[in-house]
């Protein structure tokens, strides 16, 4: 059985999906987003970049939509929280970051917090809730230039968001991040660092690494030894500046060298 949204929510999502591209300013886009997410009890959305030029970077807020009257106060709180997050090196214990690279769909702060293994994780979420919002729905997305990001929506902790709602919110977030990125302030450095070209074999190995294959499995697919696969993977890691297989896959996706399969 296929679950459905309420008619009003469905209409609002449909309207955003069909009209977001027509927005000529970020303000217009934000207004449409707020109208759509309001049907899910979400209070605002913030795009936070997690990678830059294909490399994982400290989370950085880029742009957002907030339906608050006290926008200035919220922006100041966000700036203050961002600095505190950096000062405390919270990125090292924040389970939202790894989940954002692994999750197939949106997840809540509470769901991420439950996965946190570090004692500092609880402090992180406690402070975030006190400084910003009580709960958030996090949607992993890609920005216009291919970087990884999340759109973090404020929400009421007591209101559950079901899978059908999450699917629609994910669509809103994906479109919002790309279209809004075009209006956002350009980065100071848009020129990606030069990367040495991968060989055909290295590229193939990186692709299979990205879908979770081991060296032995890749060797069987490509008809080469696992030792040879290992050499190709190590060479690719060096060329792309990746410290691990996960970083290698991430970087290759972010640079667009490999792409996800489609139905």
């Amino acid at each position: 059985m296929v679950e459905k949204l309420s008619p009003a929510a469905a209409e609002a999502v449909w309207d955003f999906l069909n009209s977001a591209q027509d927005c000529e300013t970020l303000e217009a886009l934000n207004a449409r987003l707020l109208k759509a997410i309001g049907h899910f009890g979400l209070t605002g959305g913030q795009v936070v970049r997690l990678s830059s030029d294909g490399r994982i970077s400290a989370p950085r807020a880029i742009f957002g939509a907030h339906g608050r009257a006290d926008v200035g106060a919220y922006d100041a709180a966000l700036d203050g929280w961002s600095q505190h997050y950096l000062d405390e090196a919270y990125a090292l214990v924040d389970p939202v970051i790894p989940m954002s690279f692994q999750a197939k769909g949106p997840f809540t702060w509470s769901e991420a917090e439950a996965r946190g293994m570090h004692r500092k994780t609880r402090t992180l979420f406690g402070e975030a809730r006190e400084s910003l919002i009580a709960e958030a729905l996090v949607c992993p997305v890609r920005t216009a230039n291919g970087d990884f990001a999340v759109v973090t929506f404020g929400m009421d902790r007591r209101r559950p968001v079901d899978l059908v709602e999450r699917a629609s919110i994910h669509a809103l977030a994906s479109l919002y991040a790309v279209i809004g990125d075009a209006f956002a302030e350009p980065e100071t450095s848009l020129e990606p660092p030069p990367a040495r070209p991968l060989t055909r074999r290295e590229l193939e190995c990186v692709y299979w690494v990205s879908v979770g294959k081991s060296d032995r499995e890749i060797g069987l697919i490509l008809g080469i030894s696992k030792e040879t696969v290992h050499r190709h993977v190590e060479a690719a890691k060096t060329k792309l500046g990746a410290a691990s297989r996960a970083q290698l896959a991430l970087r290759a996706f972010a640079l667009g060298l490999i792409a996800p399969a489609m139905f």
């Binding site: 296929v2 679950e3 949204l5 469905a10 999502v13 449909w14 999906l17 069909n18 591209q21 197939k104 769909g105 949607c139 992993p140 997305v141 890609r142 216009a144 291919g146 899978l163 059908v164 999450r166 699917a167 629609s168 994910h170 669509a171 994906s174 479109l175 919002y176 991040a177 790309v178 279209i179 996800p260 489609m262 139905f263």
Partner: peptide, 24 residues
Amino acid sequence: MDTGLLGPATQGWIRLKAAGLPQP
């Protein structure tokens, strides 16, 4: 396609539109 690809696909195809609402 996967819902998370909507934004990049719209950017790549310029005139791509959703045919309906996403489903899990």
